[in-house]
Amino acid sequence: MMDSSNPAAHEKFLTAPMLAALVSGGLLLAWPYLAIAEFGPGGSQNGFQWLFSAWNPETDYEHGWLVIPIIAFMLYHARHCIIRAPKRIDWRGLLLFVPACILLMLSFRVGQPRVAMGALPLILLGGAWYLAGPQTARICAFPLLFFWLCIPLPSFQQATVELQIIATQFGHLGGSLFGVDTYLQGTNIRSTEGHWDAFNIAGGCSGMRSLMALIMLSAAWAYLSDLKFWKKCVLFLSAIPLAVIGNGVRIASIVVMAEYGDARFAAKTWHDWSGLLFFFPICLLGLACVHSLLAGEMIWNPFRRKKVVVKMNKAQ
């Protein structure tokens, strides 16, 4: 095992044969994902082309492009731990690497691009485990597996109808708090006095798209926090109720705007921009509040940094 405290040990690990193995391995991995077109309409897309085309409103995964820079940031954030981790060849990494490669080959046989893209982080993680050892693999595990959050899964869309009903109820109840008389017909919110045309809470307004984006952000937030594991889980799961509440407030604001303002403006402009004005501020503030409760102090406390510095000085 290599001494992690000795910089020369890391230089010795990155020998010419090791660099050659990394480069050749990267090229071999790029070939099935970039050169082989077996997916999409008529088998005209490679794995990444299919993935990029799947980040669209129909799949509710428009946030998918954010996953790549977040992964890069998480790996950059953990760079010192990765550098200090002892490096050694560990054959146990092949127990993950080989089955993941088999999954990749099977994905071309059955024409399932989700299987191919889902195998990618497992291949990278198994390779890191084999080439650099278990500690490096453990550090890289979450950032690499985070990639799964950008792969569209149809099963998530099955909850759209339930979320539509919840959003409709929120719009009705939220409007009543501000004196707006409405009644519901399925997923339609109608004015009792007929002041404006019915608002249909369609699939795009259900909040599924926003929920998936917030789950992605809360997962990265929980990973980067210094909380205990169970508290990280609570912070991550809090994204679900926060997304429902944030979308409900947004729908209610559209109803109130239509009643007391301009119905046409509410249905068009306000509908398009209320997410930025209500949903994301409410959800991000909610995540900050949950984090503060779990940490026992405000995470935006300006004196927090001073306390950390004082503790470090006392320790020295």
Results as ranks from 00 to 15, higher is better:
6 N>S: 09
8 A>R: 14
18 M>K: 10
21 A>P: 00
24 S>C: 13
25 G>V: 00
26 G>H: 05
26 G>C: 02
31 W>Y: 15
34 L>S: 05
34 L>Y: 10
37 A>N: 11
38 E>R: 02
40 G>T: 00
43 G>E: 11
51 L>S: 01
51 L>D: 01
52 F>Y: 01
57 P>H: 04
59 T>A: 01
60 D>G: 04
61 Y>K: 01
64 G>A: 10
66 L>Q: 12
68 I>F: 06
78 A>R: 02
79 R>Q: 09
81 C>A: 13
83 I>N: 08
83 I>T: 07
87 K>A: 08
90 D>I: 05
90 D>W: 03
100 A>N: 06
102 I>D: 01
102 I>R: 03
110 V>L: 07
110 V>K: 06
111 G>C: 05
113 P>Y: 10
123 I>N: 07
124 L>H: 01
128 A>G: 12
132 A>P: 02
134 P>W: 11
134 P>Y: 07
135 Q>S: 07
137 A>Y: 05
142 F>R: 00
145 L>D: 04
147 F>C: 00
147 F>V: 10
147 F>G: 00
148 W>D: 06
150 C>A: 12
160 T>A: 03
166 I>N: 06
166 I>T: 10
168 T>M: 12
168 T>A: 15
170 F>M: 12
171 G>A: 09
171 G>M: 03
171 G>S: 09
174 G>L: 00
175 G>C: 10
177 L>T: 13
180 V>L: 09
184 L>S: 05
187 T>R: 05
194 G>P: 01
195 H>S: 12
197 D>M: 11
197 D>A: 15
197 D>C: 07
204 G>C: 05
208 M>Y: 04
210 S>F: 08
210 S>E: 08
211 L>K: 02
212 M>V: 07
218 S>M: 09
219 A>G: 12
220 A>F: 08
225 S>P: 07
226 D>H: 06
228 K>I: 12
229 F>Q: 11
229 F>I: 10
232 K>R: 14
235 L>D: 05
241 P>W: 07
245 I>R: 04
247 N>C: 11
251 I>W: 06
252 A>L: 08
252 A>G: 11
253 S>D: 13
253 S>R: 09
255 V>M: 13
256 V>C: 14
259 E>H: 15
259 E>N: 14
260 Y>H: 15
265 F>R: 02
269 T>E: 14
270 W>H: 06
281 P>F: 13
282 I>H: 10
285 L>Y: 14
288 A>D: 09
292 S>D: 07
295 A>M: 07
295 A>V: 03
302 P>C: 13
305 R>Y: 03
307 K>G: 06
308 V>F: 09
316 Q>I: 09
